[in-house]
Design a protein around this nucleic acid. Structure first.
Length: 474
RNA sequence: GGCGACGUGGCCGAAUGGCUCAGGCACGUGAUUGCAAAUCACGUUAACCCGGUUCGAUUCCGGGCGUCGCCUCCA
């Protein structure tokens, strides 16, 4: 299974050829842990999870790193020295470190609820000050950076390729509407590697002075290098990261390394809400709790995210989420109905007859994912299989294989409900069904419904079909 | 001012220079029913606007309008 992935750097789909055969190493820009991430943030993290799962499906061994930014990024102008973490700390009258712990815990709980496979490392910026300082020192030695007092800046003119990721040109950045006035920088486009401010709460005593903290971009360069090596395969983030964050990472890292840094850059488009932007001030920066208040599970949201392309904006509406919920339920039911009839045969999907319906679905599924993670089309393939089952066009002999394929698909999508083990025995169920039939015959519908509720609570679904009563687990 | 993206039926959305625009949801009619739920059958609805290229454009090019991202931390 070969993968073709869209590279922001080259603006085209490229065949993935890992640096180390059989192994893919990747880095994802994670959350800034000053506030619980909203569903828009999770779009990017769900993408990272999807990518990892597809890579694993394709047989690669994956090393996945997602950072937690737990040190302040400046909110206003550099002079204010105010960062999001510290501002939040002031609002909550908490220590910034406490905020970090609280939000990180919420983040990991959300990720688990979303069925995200944990990355192999979640490094925190504040645990890697030493690595960052070393990198900044090296840039100074190389002449890529310069000091002004206790601050250190990267000299963008020292890196000829500055702008290659975003398409920005240094001259245009300078001519931009948002001029930096009164800066100590040599050039407005130069960016901070290390800053100092005695008023900062999170600060470190280093060779650059007693009150320093890292610049906005150096943390990812330093941590990626530590855990993934100098040159690795994939780096992802939201579209907002392209510039300046990833552009600056490239400048720093390729300067220090004097060689390549990342082969493939991938970026997710933003989630929109009701056709417009999402924002706290707009009141539509929903969290998973907001969804659950309306009766939706995190997996419903996960499913919704898989229905569109990560490279296109996705419009979140409650109606769309409702639609995703119903669709997900139908796929769950499909699995249950197959399970009720398939028996327990184990199927090796690799040995299916090439022309079998399940094998054709599998090929379509994999081909879609291989083409820059076309989840929409991959999902459609599963529904086509479901349709042929419903229309009686899927041979009973293929039920076990179909079930196995659904399991494989769910290894990638991860949105099906966990399979319930145990519960009522068949005999107990049959007994309840007899009681329900009697109640119905006696027009005691309240009792009949009560029995159905009881079965439903035990994850048994009933169908009064023309052929009689059917039931299945799920 | 500069860089980039998007605009498909009631909703969410793929693919695509012509062959039915996938799939899902919703909706309508019917079957089965307890004028319930679930299930099943059948069915309806499109491409922001204006030019251009082309035998032919939703798909390519240009312009307009709208939306989104970046140039300030941000998925």
């Amino acid at each position: 299974m070969e993968l073709r992935l869209y590279n922001t750097l080259t603006r085209q789909k490229e065949l993935l050829t890992p640096i180390h055969p059989g192994e893919v190493r990747m880095y994802h820009c994670g959350p800034t842990v000053y506030q619980r991430p909203h569903i828009g943030n999770y779009r990017a993290f769900l993408f990272a999870d999807l990518l990892r799962r597809v890579l694993e499906l394709a047989g690669y061994q994956v090393l996945q790193v997602m950072n937690l930014t737990d040190v302040g990024h400046l909110v206003d102008d550099a002079e204010e020295g105010d960062d999001k973490l510290e501002a939040q700390a002031r609002r909550d009258q908490l220590d910034p470190w406490q905020i970090v712990e609280r939000v990180s815990a919420a983040f990991f709980a959300d990720m688990e609820a979303l069925a995200v496979k944990p990355a192999h490392v979640y490094p925190r910026a504040t645990d890697h000050i030493v690595e960052m300082v070393a990198m900044v020192e090296r840039l100074l030695e190389q002449g890529h950076a310069y000091r002004v007092g206790d601050n250190v800046y990267f000299d963008v003119h020292s890196f000829p390729n500055y702008g290659k990721l975003s398409g920005n040109r240094i001259e245009e950045l300078e001519a931009g509407a948002r001029l930096e006035i009164n800066s100590e920088k040599k050039h407005p486009a130069d960016f901070a590697l290390w800053k100092s401010d005695a008023k900062h709460l999170m600060k470190w005593d280093t060779v650059f002075g007693p009150d320093g903290f890292p610049g906005w971009h150096i943390e990812c360069s330093a941590m990626a290098r530590k855990y993934l090596g100098d040159h690795f395969d994939i780096h992802t983030g939201g579209e907002d990261n392209v510039f300046p964050h990833h552009e600056c990472e490239i400048a720093q890292s390729e300067s220090v390394l004097e060689g390549p840094f990342v082969n493939l850059w991938m970026h997710t488009k933003f989630l929109q809400v009701d056709g417009g932007k999402m924002g706290k001030s707009l009141g539509n920066a929903y969290t998973l709790d907001d969804l659950s208040k309306r009766g939706f599970s995190p997996l419903d949201y996960r499913f919704l995210m898989m229905r569109g392309s990560y490279r296109n904006p996705l419009n979140f509406t409650w109606q769309a989420l409702q639609g995703a919920t119903e669709a997900r339920r139908n796929l769950n039911d499909f699995r249950s109905r197959l399970a009720a009839e398939a028996g327990v045969t184990l199927v090796d999907l690799d040995s299916l007859h090439v022309d079998s319906a399940v094998n054709r679905t599998r090929l379509a599924f994999q081909a879609a994912l291989s083409d820059d993670l076309n989840t929409s089309e991959a999902l459609a393939a599963l529904f086509v299989l479901r349709n042929s089952f419903i229309h009686g066009k899927l041979a009973a002999a293929e039920y076990s294989a179909a079930l196995a394929l659904l399991a494989e698909a769910d290894d990638v999508f991860g949105f099906l409900d966990p399979v319930i083990a145990g519960g009522l025995t068949d005999a107990a169920i049959e007994q309840l069904l007899v009681a329900r039939t009697e109640a119905r015959a006696a027009k005691d519908f309240a009792r009949a419904d009560a029995i159905r509720e009881e079965l439903s609570a035990a994850h048994i679904t009933l169908e009064d079909t023309a052929d009689g009563l059917k039931w299945y687990r799920g």
